[in-house]
Design a protein around this nucleic acid. Structure first.
Length: 521
RNA sequence: GGGCCAGUAGCUCAGUUGGUUAGAGCAAUCCGCUCAUAACGGAUUGGUCGCUGGUUCAAGUCCGGCCUGGCCUACCA
């Protein structure tokens, strides 16, 4: 058996300032689908997700709610953990940046950067509004006649200087440019890579990065090693989670050696820069290899407009699962949203897609086939006669799926992969119609049995390959075919593992119910 | 202001290095079938490929300009 390389995949960690919405769910599902795919394809997978809990906003919001930051973070982190469970996400670990292991790891990477000579104490300065407790850039401000500057909300700002530690990001400009010139596919999709490159090549290169906040302004963070007056700026803390979970600072554990560098960091497009510039620079400074691919996905619009609280179109994962079903939502998101682009969610579109592909497509195909087997073959997988050309063509199409689907997945084009799989579903329907087993029942039962056998075998392959996307429903089909759990990997999509004739099957039940709309709602 | 991406049938999308009458699925209409979740099959309808100049024997595909939408243009994550 060929040994496949280990595979490490992560989601971004969710900021616990708010509660989970469809956007979080999408990222978790997307990553989960990729992780499950790799597992079924024979890789040893490590899948990490978690929460980002430090920083100003959490501290502020906690205070507004009359809570300690810690308690507030605990409360909101729980909602993300809950979402992960409800979505059936197959993560191997869930990291919270408030955990002890992460404090140790973050302080260790700080020291590493410092030892490397990349950290220095400087001054962070800018226009600060005491009322709004925030810094503003020059172009956000308006200036009154007396020279006093005001924020967009009209509060006064003053020029503030405070001591801060800086990371020498500037000295990594050229190295990053070189790195991406040689690894043009390391940031996906390509349009995001363009952004990163143009950012790197801007006039004057990169500026150094403030990586701490003085305690007088922010206490909710990981203390800077050897200087109790500062806490770490949240991005250095947050990004480090990816190695914390592998046991950093111990670089010699089996886990670390096996899984670092990460294969995919799956993130939202809004945080590309942090992952594609800061994180690699930190890693270079810490003398660690860089993640292989940063995959920035798009955002999901609802009914054609951006989700926003004020519009009131924010969808909660719970409601969606309730309305459509978990696997149905997973399928819709994966099928409807192309590689790295923004997508749109609407009720109408969801119902059309779910009914057409899942209920009428794969679900109905399995149901009609297995019913015929159940009723006409004594509830047992029949024994086939010699295969005709049509039989072989269909079987061949099923066995050829794995390579084609793998190629689409490796290119992160999940929607294309699903399109291809459903091409095979459709081919089965065409085949049934052409063979008309209901007619053969009266004229040639042996031929009918062969046709049903071919169909059942192709359905077996289909059920195996759709597992990453519909991990709860696909196994129901495999159950109905009596395929044991150790026979459900992609390698089993092959003539070497064909359905055993004589296998008893239970009375089939619909796996993907049709969504029927109430009249007038 | 500078830059990136998208703009192809009602909807979601394909369209390799420019080359015959621009494709798929869904939706719609008609026909067929009846094993099946009122599901399946076949056919048909449907596009001035955002607009506009240009290069070329030939452009959805290359170049210029413009329009629409989204995003990036550093210390909120």
């Amino acid at each position: 058996m060929s040994t496949k390389p280990p595979f490490y995949i992560t989601t971004a960690i969710s900021y616990v300032n708010g509660v989970p919405h469809l956007g979080h769910a999408y990222e978790s599902i997307l990553t989960d689908v990729l992780a499950r795919f790799k597992r079924l394809d024979g890789h040893d997978v490590m899948f990490l997700t978690g929460t980002d809990e430090h920083g100003e906003k959490v501290a502020q919001t906690a205070e507004q709610n009359g809570m300690e930051p810690r308690a507030f973070a605990d409360k909101n982190a729980a909602t993300f953990i809950e979402m992960t469970k409800k979505l059936g996400i197959s993560n191997d670990d869930f990291i919270r940046t408030t955990e002890e292991r992460h404090r140790i790891s973050s302080q260790a990477i700080w020291k590493k950067l410092n030892d490397n000579g990349d950290i220095y104490l400087g001054k962070y300065e800018g226009w600060y509004s005491v009322r709004e407790e925030a810094y503003f850039t020059e172009d956000e401000l308006t200036t009154a006649e007396d020279g006093q500057k005001f924020t967009p909300l009209g509060t006064e700002v003053e020029w503030v200087e405070e001591p801060s530690y800086f990371f020498k990001l500037s000295s990594y400009t050229d190295r990053l440019i070189e790195y991406y010139a040689a690894n043009i596919e390391a940031v996906q999709p390509p349009s995001r890579m363009n952004e990163i490159v143009s950012f790197l090549k801007q006039e004057g290169g990169l500026r150094d990065l403030s990586i701490s906040r003085h305690k007088s302004r922010l206490k909710w963070g990981i203390p800077v090693p050897d200087d109790e007056d500062h806490v770490m700026y949240v991005w250095l803390d947050a990004l480090t989670n990816y190695i914390t979970a592998l046991g950093y600072p111990d670089e010699n554990t089996e886990k670390f050696n096996k899984f670092w560098p990460a294969d995919y960091h799956v993130i939202g497009k809004d945080i590309t820069r942090f992952h594609a510039i800061y994180w690699p620079a930190f890693l270079m400074a810490a003398n660690l290899p860089l993640p292989k691919t940063i995959f920035a996905h798009g955002f999901i619009n609802v009914g054609g407009t951006k989700m926003s609280k004020s519009i009131g179109n924010v969808l909660s994962p719970d409601d969606l699962i309730e309305t459509y079903g978990l696997d149905q939502i997973r399928y819709f998101l994966m099928r409807e949203i192309p590689h790295g682009q923004d997508g749109n969610f609407s009720h109408e579109q969801a119902v059309l897609r779910i009914n057409a592909d899942l209920a009428n497509g794969l679900g109905n195909l399995a149901q009609r086939t297995l019913s015929m087997v159940y009723k006409n073959c004594d509830a047992k997988i029949p024994a086939p006669q010699a295969f005709t050309e049509d039989d072989q063509a269909l079987l061949q199409q099923a066995y050829a799926m794995t390579d084609q689907i793998r190629a689409s997945f490796d290119a992160l084009k999940i929607n294309r992969a699903l399109e291809h799989i459903w091409g095979v579903v459709s081919a089965c329907d065409v085949y049934i119609d052409a063979q008309a087993p209901w007619t053969l029942k009266k004229t040639d039962t042996e031929r009918m049995e062969t046709v049903l056998y071919v169909l059942a075998e192709v359905i077996r392959c289909l059920a195996i390959i759709v597992q990453p996307v519909v991990p709860h429903c696909a196994p129901k089909i495999l159950e109905q075919l009596n395929i044991s759990e150790d026979q459900r990997m992609f390698e089993h999509i092959s003539a070497d593992h064909v359905l055993a004739s004589g296998t008893k099957i239970d009375k089939p039940e619909g796996v993907f119910p049709r969504i029927v709309e109430e009249e007038g709602t």
